[in-house]
Design a protein around this nucleic acid. Sequence first.
DNA 1: AATACGGGGAG
DNA 2: CTCCCAGTATT
Length: 364
Amino acid sequence: MEAKLEKILNNFDKLKFQFDLIQWFLNEQRILPWRQDKDPYKIWVSEIMLQQTRVETVIPYFTNFIEKFPSPESLAKAEEEHVLKAWEGLGYYSRARNLQSAVKEVVAEYGGKVPDNVEELSKLKGVGPYTQGAILSIAYNIPEPAVDGNVMRVLSRILLIKDDIAKVSTRKLFENIVREIISVDQPSEFNQSLMELGALVCTPKSPSCLLCPVQNHCRAFSEGIQHELPYKTTKKKVKEVFITALILKNKTGEILVQKRPNEGLLANLWELPNHELQLNSMHGESEQIQRFMKEKYNLDVTVGDHFMNLKHEFSHLVWKIDVYPAYTDGALPKADNSQFVSREELSKLPFPVSYKKIISEIQW
DNA sequence: AATACGGGGAG
DNA sequence: CTCCCAGTATT
């Protein structure tokens, strides 16, 4: 064992820790839809959805998703747009596209059986170190680490580790720690209990140390510094982008929508026609709209009074969207990535939440 | 090592 | 407002 690891685990009673932690988990764990059975496919879907996403948020999406795509085969053959529609509002949409891509590979290469080893699992799109460990331990009961934010928070407090959890090297340190202290008899319960403890007891802001089943083992608690851990460097502030979006109706009252590019932000989702506002332009907002619609779609549009504005905040930027109603007599050539659609057709397309909000305000 | 990638809930 | 959540891919 590496020296640093040796020092951290010196004088740590891992057997007692395992027992206390797992005992608590078996008694107190939440009833969750993906805990109803050990179907590796369902575990996989749940783990992808749970990336950077709260349990309460995921539950209805998971139930609906499994209903629509109950098996790897059904997901593999589904239309991507239907998969994105099932993901609509959940965020990080590349997760959905990577999941479908990976499931196709599992069906083609492994006869639809989710791999039970690191080599094959880690090759799948969207399956990183955490998800791979989660599938192996939870679905197959193999003692592999599954280190997420919860695990780093809990263990940084228990073992008094002050390394910056934003660093990759720190995540690897925690993986090595888990390899040493994981229960070889109950790896599934061990990993889940660490995460469950982080979610229910050892929370970020105000941990319930007085109710903690492993309080006796916690070095941070014994020193009274549980609130100072984990240590994490903060990220810089986000960039502002000003967007002008259009609710453009044609003669028959249909609305123009366009599909976003197949990579990058909100890839393959739909949106209203829009462009980034030039703040230093000598032209007004509505004139910029007319120029833009002429250039991009060769459409002459009449722009109405300002309709609404809203903010769409991402992790790394914020859109400030101004929305205008508009009308056109013109028509559009047939295209896959932009078309006039009825209210009915529009309801079937996947949109980012910001555009969902705008669309819900449309007077049809 | 840093950045892109959603959205929402807690304090 | 800030933080951060059962993280991964790309640069």
